[in-house]
Design a protein around this nucleic acid. Structure first.
Lengths: 198, 198
DNA sequence: TGACAAAAAGCACGATCGTTCGTATTATTT
DNA sequence: AAATAATACGAACGATCGTGCTTTTTGTCA
């Protein structure tokens, strides 16, 4: 790897750590320069603009998410086992990726909700992809007869997303010690209702 | 109402509109001065600092939330009817409160997750209060025998929160047209599982 | 090792940030 | 109407924002 590519990825490392603890709006040239030890102009040269940097950070986060959640989940058998793995890996993917605080992707999703532009597009793209893959994993579970044949995969994905969001909220804001147990219980109820009639 | 109190509330109106569309980090003295037609210093004098302004905005949002969700829901009978009303009122409370974009409270929750300080405290306080009231409404429904006697109210609240979060995400970011239907379906499944054994 | 390209730094710019202070303009009350 | 208090303004501050330009340092390869 060339020197440039190396520092560029070091910058994105710092960017994700920063976004994890203070959101994407805190991704400023000066702050990242201080975090990486580079000069402002030296850092700036790696990206054409702050917006490009933010987009690059989103894409880096998406790549890490895929590597930390989807890739290991693919080693599980299709169907319910893989679905369970997806959920479990999702809940703590940030910690396993070296991020000490919240999920940068979730932060970006809320921050750029209503702000049109390339950053919003990148975030929306990630979630569209994620939800599509999620629905696909649900369809596999249906095909394997692990879940009801008349199950709506999009609805399942919607509610699974709800579990993750509520878990994140419960852990990071209200700091409830039983957040994980509640998330798992919600997941089990979701699976139970989606199971084939006995 | 005195002149000062009147403009102060006008500032908070502008602050919530701004936070709804671009997050709490965008609540800057200059932007709000421009939105209200005041001078920077004139606006600043109403709050001792930017942080105090942000806290005041959180409290204003909490007051509006209560007025738009809890107050009207209290007019319904205790139990499931009131619980349904809470959910329905919650989903579109921002629109009914004159906010054209996302929920400022949810934005603040994610933005200040990992940033200790009075703003985070105010947000966490609102959600703690909200979830406590939610659990109380669930207990009423249990008392009325509308819901199972062995239901865990905190777990119910956790999953209800998940419905709301996922709905917000689906409406604002991914812009799915069937978000409302999915949220209602998730709620119905939640209620069905919490209903007394037939 | 020397030539060339890539990367980082240095410096400066206009704009905006939160904040302070002194002054002018209003409301309110006597 | 005069006196007093409440409100708003204008100007300025040091800091930081994103972004150019030029120079210096560093890495790469013949």
């Amino acid at each position: 790897m060339s020197k440039g590519a190396h520092t560029r990825s070091a910058i994105l490392d710092a960017a994700l750590a920063q976004a994890s603890e203070a959101g994407f709006e805190s991704l400023t040239i000066g702050v990242l320069a201080a975090r990486t030890g580079l000069s402002k102009s030296g850092l700036f040269a790696h990206f054409g603009s702050r917006e490009d940097l933010q987009v690059a950070a989103i894409e880096a986060a998406a790549a890490r998410f895929t590597a930390a959640v989807f890739v290991p989940a693919l080693q599980m058998r299709r169907g319910l086992p893989r679905l369970r793995a997806l959920f479990d890996l999702w809940l703590d993917w940030t910690a396993r990726s070296g991020l000490e605080h919240g999920c940068p992707m979730l932060a970006a999703a809320v921050e750029f909700d209503d702000r049109p532009g390339p950053v919003r597009d990148a975030v929306a793209d990630h979630y569209a992809r994620l939800e599509r893959e999620l629905a696909r994993a649900v369809r596999f579970a249906v095909d394997e007869r692990h879940l009801r044949i008349d199950l709506d995969p999009a609805q399942f994905a919607f509610e699974l997303l709800g579990c993750v969001f509520s878990y994140h909220h419960s852990v990071r804001l209200t700091r409830r010690p039983n957040a994980l147990a509640q998330a798992r219980a919600a997941f089990e109820r979701l699976v139970a209702d989606a199971s084939p009639a006995h």
